[in-house]
């Protein structure tokens, strides 16, 4: 995904810079490997559309926040950096919240407090603290995009399975046929698993994704429990 976009301007995208975007997508994924930012994410993954909007919001906040913090990194006093970071994150989240309320009011209502909770999403604070405070704005921007994307990928995968298995739809379009009229797959006796739409299945789906990723990449396996 990153390659096609970045090939146009060569000098800015050295191999190292590309790595900043690519690493978080798989081997250094913020959710499955760094264990950051699970908080505000899972409750809204019952539908794919909400997952995509949430992912885009987080990408925006991580990327822009990283740039802002990186620009200010030399003037932030060490003792109040946490509050500064929170204020920067909160400002960006207010922008996202007002934008969503203006353009997709229905969805904004559905996401309710979870947009606000992006502020305390550990990915944001983690990247501000671990990367943006010590790197140049351009690198921080790429790092923010990468981590936001890595977060979004997991969100979209979970949302995909939950909406497909739970209500037989994707983006609200009935992919498997209409369950009431018994068309498509439902004519063969297929049934939706309504349980997928409830809270516990989000956790179990994520657990299975983590297990799958670690069985593919043995180096990620934890020694202790």
């Amino acid at each position: 995904m990153a390659d096609t976009k970045t090939k146009e301007k060569e000098p800015l995208f050295s191999k190292k810079n590309l790595g900043l975007v690519k690493d978080p997508l798989a081997d250094n994924n913020p959710i499955t490997v760094q264990v950051l930012g699970i908080c505000s994410a899972l409750a809204i993954t019952a539908e794919l559309k909400a997952s995509v909007i949430m992912a885009l919001s987080v990408i925006f906040v991580t990327a822009m926040g990283n740039v802002v913090i990186s620009l200010m990194r030399n003037i932030i006093p060490n003792s109040i950096r946490i509050i500064t970071q929170l204020v920067v994150a909160a400002t960006l989240v207010i922008l996202v919240d007002l934008t969503l309320k203006a353009f997709v009011p229905d969805l904004a209502k559905k996401l309710s407090v979870f947009i606000g909770l992006i502020i305390t999403n550990c990915i944001i604070m983690g990247r501000f603290e671990a990367f943006a405070l010590g790197n140049t704005p351009w690198k921080s921007f790429l790092d923010g995009i990468g981590n936001g994307l890595g977060y979004g990928v997991i969100l979209v995968i979970v949302g995909f399975f939950r909406e497909l298995l739970g209500s037989g739809k994707l983006f609200g379009i009935e992919i498997l046929g209409n369950p009431v009229d018994k068309t498509g797959l439902y004519a063969l006796g297929y049934e939706n698993n309504g349980f997928m739409l409830l809270a516990p299945m989000a956790l179990i789906t994520l657990g299975l994704i983590i297990g799958f990723q670690r069985s593919r990449n043995k180096s990620l396996i934890e020694e202790t429990h």
Binding site: V35, I204, I210
Partner: peptide, 21 residues
């Protein structure tokens, strides 16, 4: 091995959530 640590914790939390329902 693949589920050690994080994976099994998520699944356990899911099972506990079913209990709390």
């Amino acid at each position: 091995p693949a589920f050690r640590g994080l994976g099994i914790t998520f699944i356990l939390t899911g099972l506990m959530a079913i209990g709390f329902m």
